[in-house]
Write a protein that binds this DNA or RNA. Structure first.
Lengths: 148, 148
DNA sequence: CGGAATCCAAATAGATACTG
DNA sequence: CAGTATCTATTTGGATTCCG
């Protein structure tokens, strides 16, 4: 789910070994949903949205985020924050004190993204019941189907 | 119904940092995701968006989708379609002929979702360059970092 | 406190073969 | 044509330990 086919994708220094001529189903030139994958790959994971939502409320320290996002592990919070930082959605400030103090806040672009997330959240809320009902109906009509 | 309990709010300019008071997130009373997770879990996977985008153009048969979405396997197309159907985003019509003819089309709710996806696609397109640049910078500043 | 490193379990995706 | 059924490979997330 990470860096897919941006067309300009940066292969990081320590690129994967072997695996030369990968097909890499690059969305040719006709499919216009190309850029959207970058964003979906980011917000589609398990924790990014929750972290972004928390940061939308203001600057937070690492430990604060850990508490604010219930269930997230230290490792996943670190990974999530690094990825968001790498994409330019989150800014990280290190205060060279003892003990260390590291603060995270959304960048302007990150804040812009929250507007879209709000739209998504609204739509989700509006259709939550319908989706749940549809699932119940489908599950009833397809017993012993294993889709997940 | 749209402005009820949404997930993200725009931070006020003078918001005190780390003010442990009111969470600016209102997802009802508990820390639930407002149902946005249901939607993200669906559109966040590898293929759903591509399938939805293709169906947004009109009714499609299974084989047509298989050709239209480059790289998807038969199995993943089936799974993706079943999940979308279960959520009430896609409708499936079986014509009892020989050979079988199965058609897929978006439901009204599915079409509604495409509007949001368009918003996301637009935003992605607008920030694609910025994101790519941010990634290059980050990767340059963090050699041998493996964020995946 | 804020991580990085390691190991392991689970979820997800892909290839292939078979069928009504 | 439109799927299932298996099996395997890859990705992802979680738990734990250690460290400046």
């Amino acid at each position: 789910m990470s860096e897919t086919h941006t067309g300009v994708t940066t292969p990081r220094p320590g690129s994967p070994p072997g695996a030369a001529g990968e097909p890499v189903i690059s969305c040719g030139e006709e499919h216009e949903d190309c850029g959207i994958r970058d964003v979906l790959d980011r917000i589609g994971d398990k924790w990014s949205v929750l972290v972004i939502v928390e940061l939308a409320a203001g600057t937070r320290r690492f430990r604060e985020l850990l508490r604010a996002v219930p269930g997230i592990s230290q490792r996943m919070l670190t990974l999530t924050l690094r990825r968001l930082e790498r994409d330019g959605l989150v800014h990280r400030t290190v205060h060279p004190t003892v003990p260390p103090r590291v603060e995270y806040r959304l960048t302007a672009m990150g804040h812009g993204l929250t507007l879209l997330l709000k739209g998504l959240a609204d739509w989700s809320a509006d259709h939550r019941a319908a989706i749940a009902a549809s699932r119940r109906r489908w599950d009833a009509e397809h017993p012993e189907a294993d889709i997940r």
